[in-house]
Design a binder for these strands. Structure first.
Lengths: 140, 140
DNA sequence: CAGCATCCCAAAGGATACTG
DNA sequence: CAGTATCCTTTGGGATGCTG
């Protein structure tokens, strides 16, 4: 089941509104808050390739501060997506691995990555066109 | 410890690192910035059901301010995910609809929503357990 | 109706120093 | 190594008022 279907007219999937950011009818907001933040996905991607220790993660994820790595793995642990294991060695050693739930997320992340790769040129092109037609624009 | 959901494989998908937030080797960061922000997904969800005018969108998406709706649709337009059409009537009338690229994203959004629904209980449970064991925790 | 401009606050996140 | 604790800057985003 590939997400890749270039050139096929993509009919929008039927989606129940269920929006309402503070109206927790569906838990998508929680997931988006996790998937959408700056580092969680990168941590999940790294852990998808196997268990990693704290410093390993930090070295693998370019630019992440120690503080944000701590916060990110803690939140993922809290949500039951990552399992944190402390080995009482000296110095301390801790490893992180995906739980089953977390692992099931990697498929979605992969789908997202595939979609990104498939459409990155289109998007870049669209941006250039937009920026060319809207010279002074603070949309970013 | 078996899980109740479908036979979804727990094996992580193989993912190329390609992380590096500022290293645009793969465009996933751009997509995540869009998918992950507070309102974009809700706008996409609403537009998945058909074209909408500005005020329609605002009424459909509970809690969004006019400012954020403007910014959100502008960014989606800039990325080529949404098409903005101005009708020179008086008063002005504008409608928004998904482009093909945008529509293709709805499948991913739907997958995300499905995943959320499927795991929301598990996640809620994990959080309660975590919070119970870590009484004073500022993780949020 | 469909915005733009301003102001302002809260949350996210980086830098740095210190600890078991 | 694997974190905490502080401080401080940046960004996100709400409220309000005005316009074509």
């Amino acid at each position: 089941m590939s997400v890749t279907h270039t050139g096929v007219t993509a009919a929008p999937a039927e989606l129940e509104p269920c929006g309402q950011p503070h109206h927790p009818d569906c838990g998508i907001r929680d997931v988006l808050d996790r998937v959408g933040d700056k580092w969680s996905v990168l941590v999940i991607v790294e852990l998808a390739n196997g268990a990693r220790r704290f410093r390993q993660l930090q070295r693998a994820i370019d630019g992440i501060s120690q503080r944000m790595l701590t916060l990110t793995v803690r939140r993922l642990e809290r949500d039951g997506l990552v399992l944190r294991t402390v080995y009482p060695t000296v110095p301390a050693q801790v490893d992180y691995r995906l739980t089953e739930t977390g692992a099931s997320l990697t498929h979605l992340v992969k789908a997202l990555a595939d979609w990104s790769l498939e459409h990155r040129d289109t998007i870049a092109h669209a941006r250039q066109a937009y920026d060319a037609q809207h010279p002074d624009n603070e949309i970013r």
